[in-house]
Design a binder for these strands. Structure first.
Length: 270
DNA sequence: ACCCAGGCATTGG
DNA sequence: CCAATGCATGGG
């Protein structure tokens, strides 16, 4: 039995668009109409099935991980009811009905991913990140497990610059790998406390902290106001908006879902 | 040969 | 406190 029933509505195609939009992500690999990821050292393949998903293998270990990865824990109904009060957001949620933002299940992967995406295009970020994964990740059949902090910690700066990291970014990644926070403890903190802890680490500013809240911790009110993509998406759908951070209040307490719908809407809607 | 792209630390006023 | 600067890569 490999059928996983999912809360409705759910649109696998829209929800996984992110894994195809910017190039290859070797740790979350789109391959032959399915998403591949290593869970507990084992490669899992997820593809659409009528009324749900086909997950192989599906067992007590992989099911919770897959639910997390696919953002199935997001409760869309209250957000959609909220969105109906906003003509612009209503149009987007109606068009993207069943979109659930995928999450980054591994905190180290989430933060290293942020470093790679600082300043450069996402295309460029994905290319550099995939070279890191190919070189230091753990290969499965098609996909790789993202490199562990332990694996990265003993590297030299040149090992990372040779993959396309700047010297600064190499320092950030090595610093994180050698002195990672207590992830369990971090996840128990309130949003603002998490941000303070992330920002205290060299190389991680507010933008990285906001995305950590949004994509790893799935915090409902996370709003990456400094994100260039989000700024452009808000400007497109709400030309009257000036201060993006203040504008997020209008979506309270659904800032995270709103940000994801705006970003995906900007990419997928004409 | 430029220029920009889902930031950040560093330096100087 | 704010403005200017360097950073490496991929795509236009």
């Amino acid at each position: 039995m490999t059928f996983l029933s999912v809360p409705q509505p759910y649109d696998f195609e829209v929800s996984t668009e992110r894994f195809r939009a910017f190039g290859i992500d070797l740790a979350n690999l789109w391959h032959e109409d399915g998403l591949h990821r290593v869970v507990d050292g084992l490669e899992v393949r997820i593809e659409a099935a009528s009324g749900g998903l086909d997950v192989q293998p599906l067992d007590a270990a992989t099911e919770p991980a897959v639910r997390t990865l696919l953002g199935l824990e997001f409760d869309l109904d209250p957000f959609y009811r909220f969105a109906h009060g906003d003509p612009v957001l209503r149009l987007i949620t109606d068009s993207l009905s069943g979109f659930r933002p995928p999450l980054a299940p591994d905190p180290f992967e989430a933060l290293v991913g942020s470093v790679t995406a600082q300043q450069v295009s996402l295309q460029s970020a994905f290319a550099v990140r995939s070279r890191l994964i190919a070189r230091y990740g753990e290969p499965a059949e098609h996909v790789y497990a993202f490199p562990t902090p332990e694996r990265i910690a003993h590297l030299r700066e040149e090992d990372l610059t040779s993959l396309g990291f700047s010297r600064r970014k190499s320092e950030y990644v090595l610093g994180l790998a050698r002195n990672p926070p207590d992830w369990e403890e971090l996840s128990a903190l309130a949003d603002e406390e998490v941000k303070l802890r992330i920002v205290s680490m060299r190389g991680f500013g507010e933008w990285s902290a906001d995305w950590f809240l949004a994509r790893h911790l799935a915090r409902a009110r996370a709003w990456p106001a400094g994100d260039l993509g989000l700024v452009k998406a808000v400007a497109r759908f709400y030309p009257e908006a000036t201060d993006i951070r203040a504008f997020g209040e209008r979506f309270d307490p659904f800032q995270n879902l709103a940000a994801h719908y705006l970003l995906t809407g900007a990419r997928m809607l004409t």
